[in-house]
Design a protein around this nucleic acid. Sequence first.
RNA 1: GUGGCUAUAGCUCAGUUGGUUAGAGCGCCGGAUUGUGAUUCCGGAGGUCGCCGGUUCAAAUCCGGUUAGCCACCCCA
Length: 447
Amino acid sequence: MSDLIQPRTLKGFRDYLPNTMMAREQLVETARRVYRSYGFSPIDTPALEYAEILTGKGGDESDKQLYRFTDHGGRDVAMRFDLTVPLARFAAQYSQQLGTPFKRYHIATVWRGENTQKGRYREFMQCDFDTIGTESNAADIEALLVIHDLMEAIGVAFSNGDLGFGIRVNNRLVLNGLLEKQGLQEQSVGVLRSLDKLPKIGREKVIAEMTEHVGATAEQANSVIDLAELTGETGDVLNSLETMLSGSEVGQLGVARLRELFSACLTAGIPSERIGLDLSIARGLDYYTGTIYETFLTDMPNIGSVCSGGRYDNLAGLFTNEKLPGIGASLGLDRLLAALELMEKVQTASTPAEIFIPQFDADRLGEYLKLARELRAEGFTVEVYPEAKPLKKQLKYCDKKGHRVAIIAGGNEFKAGVWQVKNLQVRGEQSDVSGANLAEHLRSLLR
RNA sequence: GUGGCUAUAGCUCAGUUGGUUAGAGCGCCGGAUUGUGAUUCCGGAGGUCGCCGGUUCAAAUCCGGUUAGCCACCCCA
């Protein structure tokens, strides 16, 4: 029988079993809730776009690892590799009816044909939020608050309140000011790319790379790294920066923006240990021009940034002459999920039903179904076992699936007018509850 | 895309220099227990050794290719 097709999935593409998918949906719901709480509105765009939309003008396609092909109508099309470029097209197309400022969130799957690694897939979900049409630093500050509240909410959902994360902040203007002072504007991409490796390969190697490959002098390389390595209290570092960048208008503006951002975040109640100035964060896509954010998990730094973003001056420049500045960030949902799994923060329950009702007495199916419906109307999630098997089997089933409470009733209970409510999380804990008290009792058990 | 490591039961892994019917623990199914899920005991199912080809009297074991996972570079979520 070798004519069977081997069931398999493509490299970098994955199936999600119930317990993983439950965690995934919980992340999506958390992101959606936090974004909405700040007034971001939902949008969606097609998975497939004209290739020219995604590649941009002379865009380096190989960098984006596009899935690109010719469709049945002969069109040159490609699958979106992020949600920002589709937003740019969207904003250019609808800016007149949307008005500004425009705040949207977009939770969707994207595709990149690059090589896989832990937490790096070819199909993965991003949860983006952006505010476009304003250059106000208030939007930058709000974006940082959103990232913080999002990570905090995920911690509450998955880790009893504390996930352990840090948001690193920088501003491209500061780096641009430095490059300007050093006369390195021409080599900025190479310099920043090298600088970004500082934590990983160290000062000596970064200097070597900058001098040998990027075309900077040793003196220039040293002063860039001197600035990136500034450490200490955020306020002190900002003061040092101000001095080092004296004479550079953009540099001073960057420092001022960072100063206001840190100050406002502290006033707004963000714990200072969760946000930090990190001048070595240079990366971020080419289009970032101002504030930059990266979020790392304290216990899982190697998995990379799980939520990154920043400010861009001209989002939709390829599509419209209207200038649309904006700021936003993206939660890498699948990367974060991979980290949560490694940290053993993902629940093992594979059922969304919290309450289990065994078919104890086959003749009373209608009554079990009635009870289940009444409880659903009260807001509970309830599953009735589909077969009248021995009770032992039915309880084994719900133990495996992860229901939290079982409601058992046979002839004795129906005669006495009570339900036996079994707390499946505490072995042997079981009590008789009258119908009138059932909902309240369940609520206290499921709290 | 380049380079490296790995691939044996549902899961985690043994398998000695190539040598008969490839093993363990956990899990799963059935029973002991015809009104109760993490214990105990008994029994059972489940593997083309990732896939294809080569060397050999003989391949899970050696060689080549391929697919997938992981790691580094690159890039990023």
